[in-house]
Amino acid sequence: MRALRIEFLKIRYKKIWLIVFSIIIVQGLWQLWAVRKMDANDLVQGWMFCLYQFPVLNTIMMPITAAVVASRLCDVEHKGEMLKLLYTVIPEQKLFFTKFLCGALFMTLATILQVFIIVTIGSIKGFVGSIPMDKMLYYFVFTVLINVTILLIQQLLSLHFKNQMIPITIGLLGSFMGLFSLFFPEGIKRFLIWSYYGVLLLVGMDWNEKTRVTNYYYTSPDWIGFFVVIFVFVAVYALSLVLIKRREI
């Protein structure tokens, strides 16, 4: 707990929360614009619409958010050459974990805000039916899991490279790859961690070319995809520990 407090003290005045809030506000405004004209059929599918739209938006925005958060957290150590001092008072693994925990809190906060936005929009617009609590929970868990896995990759890169342009660029590339992967065949999509916001979608979309009507439907959670992300998370974490232990200052 003390180590986490220290981590927050380090990023004082860095306004990371403001970056996270800004991105979520952009997402919220985007969603508000998307739901501005809804007929009766749209309102029936309102919850599904949001649970489809947010993961797609997340594919673009969350990898960038994770890259920026990780970069801000790690750059403070590079700028003042703090690692050579910190590694004499705190084990490398503990510092890595605390930093990750700090970043993960920001990414979780972002997801909580998204759920809050979905619920608020649903209530304001009067989506038909009560809030689908189970689907919301799935959405929350899946999104947080992908967020923290991408954050972990970004943190590893941000801690390794002094020049933060490298991890930020990788984050941007990941975001684009994730977005384009939504058009890739299922087999290829599953090899990219950035595309898992789409892989773990809880809602399917059926667009009728003739009637130009879009219908949304719930799908069952993709537990295989879920465990693939957990596996990637564990593998990247284990790799991170090996690399930071090996690294010399």
Partner: peptide, 13 residues
């Protein structure tokens, strides 16, 4: 206590 090469610090604090 250690001071290695250049001093370590958080410039924004």
């Amino acid at each position: 206590g250690a001071l290695i090469e250049s001093p370590s610090y958080y410039g924004h604090l």
